[in-house]
Design a protein around this nucleic acid. Structure first.
Length: 559
RNA sequence: AACUCCAUGGUGUAACGGUAGCACAACAGAUUUUGGUUCUGUUUGUCAAGGUUCGAAUCCUUGUGGAGUUGCCA
């Protein structure tokens, strides 16, 4: 057709193109269907970007539909957090907010329709009996003794199930398909079960609830969804999805397409495991900055744009891949490098006294806000006689490739002066406590001196009198093995005990007082940091979002 | 020894029977008032064996390896 094959499309978008070209549908409708039983994680972000992204690209729409068919697990708390997370990611469902529970009456009607057509029956067996009757992977199942119950009896019993005459588990409604089907999902699947539990939206209106399989396709059909995109584990459910659409008077015919879910190394993604990390206090909560949840990522300072870009790069396939966390971090750095304002901050302070600098003098130096965006201009940074530098920027016995400060050597203090270290002061234990240095007035602003001498390093600093005290939290990967999820061992055994390092006494450039929660900035030479939600004016707290690439860290000899 | 699906550098992902490309990672070098950024270059790949074809990552067969499925969860 005329569609240019410029950028390559994933197999789902190709299917949509074909459907559009063959005029199978006159528009494209997708949906994101979370169950409100937990917090969204980055795996959901992949699905959100796919579904809402397609809606944008094809000028269609994407519905947000809560798949709330299991009252025992679900709660409004989750509904709210899911909405917030989707909005944060930059997507919107407009007027198209739906709940599967809105369709309970319709689904009930359709169940009756099935019974009336001899395609569903009430089964009195216990779940154990049903399990053994189902057969297994190698062997066919056997028919339930209740399979050929008279139509009227089925109708009566199903009504009485709805009326609440039976206890949980006493009876179920089953689709009558084929107990010998090679696909276990087709062996007379349960479509309604009795649950006497209050539902977060319908309260106690119902005590029977439709199963996922009896809900999802019909909900898609009711909403005129054209492409129902889900993850690979629903592949075996597709025949059932289609069976219901074929045997029910549905208003439209959606198509289910499966793709591979997202997995990342050095983390876990399953709801159960994330819940365990929270409940057993291995992390501070669902929004702990180390968590792969959307709320954790947001608190960590990852920009939504970076998540969207990441989802674009990893693509959509049916191959069960594991993505490298460095790909995510690279997306984060790419966005932040372009957007983040630069500041100076000293994480582990070492005192420096400029002995030839006047005691009461303060100079305000101009520093570029963001070299990627020169139009943003400069900020003023105060310089004075007593400063802090990073402990890592000084070494007494420095190896050849160490470009930073050491006794007798000179470095540039960013935007200020060239500084030479003359003397090291130590405490009784031999720890370095202070550096005595001199500055060269001819290098004002950090300029090269007229004599043409060179310097190998530029380091950051903060004026002692002007510094803001802050706590800085450094995060590392939560697990120290690539796939803590797999294998026989308990994933908790692979927890990285150093995943959180708190630096209680960081010294910040005073301009950092104006940074708002939710904004991520660069601490020059260190990384990207954001103000934590626990921060206050009196005691600021910063999170390290991600470090800068650090070729020195890789090159330096191990201590 | 059921059914369904999957297999391209270290990790992802393109190539729709016609030059195996891109990103990340790694490694060099250049630039740099961030050991950042940017730029240049290098290394590494079609699971295997047959077949069809002038030509196969792509189509066919068989193997091998992996995943999912035996909830009244979704």
């Amino acid at each position: 057709m005329t569609t240019p094959r410029s950028a390559s499309k994933d197999f789902i978008r190709e299917i949509i193109d074909e459907d559009l070209n063959s005029a199978k549908h006159d528009g494209t409708v997708t949906r994101f269907p979370p169950e409100p039983n937990g917090y969204l994680h980055i795996g959901h972000a992949k699905s959100i970007c796919l579904n809402f992204g397609i809606a944008q690209e094809y000028d269609g729409r994407c519905h947000l539909r809560f798949d709330d068919t299991n009252p025992a697990k679900e709660d409004t708390e989750y509904v709210d957090s899911i909405k917030e997370d989707i909005h944060w990611l930059g997507f919107d469902w407009g007027d198209h907010l739906y709940f599967a529970s809105d369709y309970f009456e319709k689904l009930f009607e359709w169940a009756v329709h099935l019974i009336e057509n001899g395609k569903a029956y009430v089964d009195d067996q216990s779940s154990d009996e049903m399990r053994s009757g189902r057969g297994d992977l190698q062997n066919p199942g056997t028919d339930s003794p209740f399979r050929n119950r008279p139509l009227k009896e089925n109708l009566d019993l199903f009504d009485r199930m709805r009326a609440g005459e039976f206890k949980d588990g006493e009876k179920v409604l089953r689709a009558k398909i084929d107990m010998a089907h090679p696909n276990l999902n087709m062996r007379d699947p349960v479509i309604y079960r009795i649950v006497h539990t209050e539902h977060h939206r319908t309260g106690d209106t119902w005590c029977i609830y439709p199963m996922y399989d009896f809900t999802h396709g019909q909900s898609d059909a009711l909403e005129y969804v054209t492409h129902s995109l889900c993850t690979l584990e629903f592949e075996n459910h597709r025949p059932l999805y289609e069976w219901f659409l074929e045997n029910l008077p549905v208003p439209s015919r959606p198509r289910q397409i499966e793709f591979s879910r997202l997995s990342l190394n050095y983390t876990v993604m399953s709801k159960r495991k994330l819940l365990q990390l929270v409940e057993e206090n291995y992390v501070s909560g669902w929004n702990d900055p180390r968590m792969p949840t959307i709320s954790g990522i947001r608190r960590r300072g990852y920009p939504a744009e970076a998540i969207r870009n990441f989802c674009k790069t990893i693509g959509i396939t049916k191959f069960k891949s594991t993505n490298d966390i460095s790909l995510l971090e690279s997306s984060v750095r790419e966005v932040l490098n372009a957007d983040a304002s630069r500041f100076m901050a000293v994480l582990k302070p070492l005192k420096v006294v400029i002995t030839n600098y006047p005691e009461d003098q303060v100079e305000q130096f101009d520093a570029v806000i963001n070299p990627e965006k020169p139009e943003l201009g400069t900020r003023k940074v105060p310089f004075s006689r007593e400063l802090f530098i990073e402990q890592d920027d000084f070494m007494e016995d420095a190896p050849k490739k160490f470009f930073r400060l050491t006794v007798g050597k000179e470095v540039r203090f960013r935007c200020a002066y060239w500084i030479r270290c003359n003397e090291v002061i130590k405490d009784d234990d031999g720890n370095v406590t202070e550096l005595r240095c001199t500055y060269d007035p001819e290098t004002r602003g950090g300029e090269n001196p007229p004599d043409g001498r060179k310097v190998k390093a530029t380091i950051h600093w903060v004026s002692a009198d002007h510094a803001l005290d802050a706590e800085v939290r450094l995060y590392d990967r939560l697990f120290n093995t690539e796939s803590p999820d797999s294998g026989d061992s308990n994933f908790l055994e692979h927890l990285n005990s150093d995943s959180l390092e708190i630096l209680p006494a960081a010294k910040l450039e005073p301009n950092l007082a104006d940074v708002a929660v939710g904004e991520t900035v660069q601490f020059e030479r260190l990384g990207y940091f954001c103000v934590d939600i626990e921060s206050s004016d009196e005691s600021p707290v910063f999170n390290r979002t991600v470090g800068l690439r650090d070729s020195w860290a890789k090159a330096k000899p191990k201590s």
